[in-house]
Every structure is written in structure tokens, then in C-alpha cells.
Design a binder for these strands. Structure first.
Lengths: 109, 109
DNA sequence: ACCGCTACTAAGTGTTACTATGTAGCGGTA
DNA sequence: TACCGCTACATAGTAACACTTAGTAGCGGT
């Protein structure tokens, strides 16, 4: 993946995944595919699983293990109250940064 | 600083500084103050100096040492051709990410 | 019997921003 | 004169995050 994108995703990917989960619960493999559909073609599977473990340990999601028709059991993640709070803060931070950057981009040159 | 902001700045701060330099050349201490004026109140001075050394080593900026009226000599950084290219890529990457996130934010919940 | 897709796990790496601290020149003031 | 505050740069050590790579394992189809 482009190195710039890699670095830019840091701190944002977590919010992106939480936003996806706020739409509806999902499991790791599904989230990966949705990201690919969104255009994030090169996000590694391992990255998503590691991230999911992190947000689970932070207590932002609830987890339910459900059987799958075509493979090992799925770990379905859903955003809980704390996760919703966290996501709200994420958007606040994001908007702040996006505002500043838009200003810079327009003012620039 | 808010932890979310810290992580979100990763990969963006470099672009922000390059964008500032594309407006006009500047030295470290000046860049730090400008960032503070922009609202990035808690960006550490040391962070900026380290970042400037990085982009200098990457060859994105030219450096001229000039005497100061009120302190040690300043290292004035200016964006060179390669830096301009890099900044252009940065904006492309940023726009891609910002688009996706806006979609998520609007579609969300 | 094997391949491909689904699905999750885990160890080790590089990059980045942070904290904390140190050096040093200059002007003003008690 | 001695000190303080502002200007200005430098650096060692830390935490967090996404990456690469490799592995386990169930299921359906050929």
C-alpha cells in the first residue's frame, strides 16, 4: 500500500471500523470485505483482526460467537454504549482536523 | 493531548507542515507557533523538530541557516520540487480518505 | 484427495508523535 | 551584575498503530 495511506490510516482506521459497526453488527471477515468495497483495497486482514481485539479489550464492542455456514464460527462485534461515546469523540476530533486541513488546502498556493 | 488526536495526527502532521511551508518558507519555532494559532495547541516543540529533520533527510525541503535578532540562528526550511510532488500526493491521499469518511459519517446511523 | 473460499490468530517490524530534558543567545530589570 | 523570560534548536527513550508473514481450521466442489 502507499506509505502515505498507511500512516494516514493510523488513528482513523479504528474510527472507520467503529463507524461500520454503528451501522450494524459485523464480524472480522465481513468488515474486511466491506472495506475493500469502499476502496481500501490493500488493508491487510491481519490488521483488522488485531484492531478488533484492541477495541474489544477497550470495551467498545460486545462480542457474540455464532456458527457459520461456510467456515469456522464467526465473532460478531456490535458497538455498545461506550463504543458509541467513543465514536462520537472520534467524529469530533476528525471534524476538527478536517476543518484545519481544508483551510490549509484552500489557502495553499 | 487527547489520545485520539495524537493518533490521528500520525501521517497528517507531516503533510500539514509541508502545506505550511508551501505557503512560504519558515523555521521550526515559527511553524510551532503557527500550528498553535491554528488551534493545535498541544503539539510539542520537539515533535516539530524531529519531523523537520525527517523531511530534510527525505529531501523534501531545502535548508538555509540565517541569523536571528533574538536567539540562536534559525534553520529556515523551504519546500523544493520533490517536496511539492510529495505534498500533491499527500492531498490526493487525504482527499480519498476524507471522501470515504464523509460517506461513513453521513450514512452512519 | 485436493483446492479455494471462509474465518480467525499471533509473532515480529517500522513509522510516528509523545514526554522530558538539555543547550544556548538575547533583552530587560531589580 | 545576576537573573528571568523568550527565542531557537536538539535528542534519548516510550507508546500506539498498521504492516508483513505465517499459521490453524471448517466447508463445498471437482
Amino acid at each position: 500500500m502507499a506509505k502515505q495511506m498507511t500512516e494516514m490510516l493510523k488513528g482513523n482506521l479504528e474510527g472507520i471500523v467503529l463507524a461500520i459497526l454503528s451501522d450494524r453488527p459485523a464480524y472480522g471477515y465481513e468488515i474486511t470485505s466491506r472495506l475493500r468495497e469502499m476502496g481500501f483495497a490493500d488493508i491487510a486482514e491481519g490488521t483488522i483482526y488485531a484492531l478488533l481485539i484492541r477495541i474489544e479489550q477497550k470495551g467498545l464492542v460486545d462480542v457474540v460467537k455464532t456458527p457459520s455456514e461456510k467456515g469456522p464460527p464467526r465473532k460478531v462485534f456490535s458497538l455498545n454504549l461506550q463504543g458509541q461515546e467513543y465514536l462520537k469523540e472520534f467524529w469530533t476530533t476528525w471534524n476538527f482536523l478536517a476543518d484545519r486541513l481544508q483551510q490549509l488546502h484552500q489557502g495553499g498556493r
